[in-house]
């Protein structure tokens, strides 16, 4: 992967896990010092900077794969913008100041700490459906890869086979839930 190119504005393609790791390593090396300088100026320490930057990378990935955000600036500038927002959110939590609420509403950044109730209970059932199913469903629902890419990377003969396998994996999980006589409410306590 050509590092200098990936740090510039271009359509984001989360192709393979290796590509993603290479891009993230390049971004970490290139953008973390600037994020660290900002956090230091604002009174934070190295651990604060690492926490903020790592959360920002997660949000960066999710916003670009969701295709809801069209980045008009470089990846580095976009990432640093997310870092600044997260720092402000953290500062707001610490100082409980209300005047930043308006800021928050403008940016619409999802809360990384918003965990799904009983997620672990359901995740253990997902694991019973098999690692391949878990990886396949993750490619659809988290990485949001295109169907042709999923079909080729998982070795399916056609896009339709990949889609049907996705439904079969969902069926496996549903059957596991039913066999254990669990209901939707069991996952939302």
């Amino acid at each position: 992967m050509e590092v200098t190119e990936t740090l510039e504005r271009k359509p984001f393609m989360a192709t393979t896990a290796d590509d993603r790791l290479a891009l993230f390593e390049a971004l970490y090396e290139e953008a973390f010092p600037a994020a660290a300088r900002f956090v230091h100026r604002m009174g934070g320490n190295l651990e604060d900077a690492q926490d903020i930057f790592q959360d920002a990378l997660v949000l960066f990935y999710e916003s670009l794969t969701s295709k809801k955000v069209h980045v008009e600036i470089s990846y580095k500038a976009y990432l640093l913008g997310i870092c600044k927002h997260l720092w402000i959110r953290k500062a707001k939590t610490r100082s409980n100041e209300v005047h930043l609420e308006k800021w928050e509403k403008c940016l619409d950044v999802p809360d990384l700490n918003e965990a799904h109730p009983s997620a672990n209970k359901l995740l253990s059932l997902l694991e019973l459906a098999g690692q391949k199913c878990l990886d396949l469903l993750k490619s659809f629902y988290y990485d949001r890869l295109s169907i042709p890419l999923i079909a080729s990377s998982f070795g399916f003969g056609s896009e339709r086979s990949a889609t049907v396998q996705k439904y079969k994996c969902l069926e496996k999980v549903r059957n596991e839930v039913k066999s254990k006589a669990l209901h939707y409410e069991d996952f939302t306590d």
Partner: peptide
Amino acid sequence: LQKTISEVIFLHGRKQL
């Protein structure tokens, strides 16, 4: 249930990342 499954898969992906 299917909505919950997709949300849990999303959280699992986030944790892995």
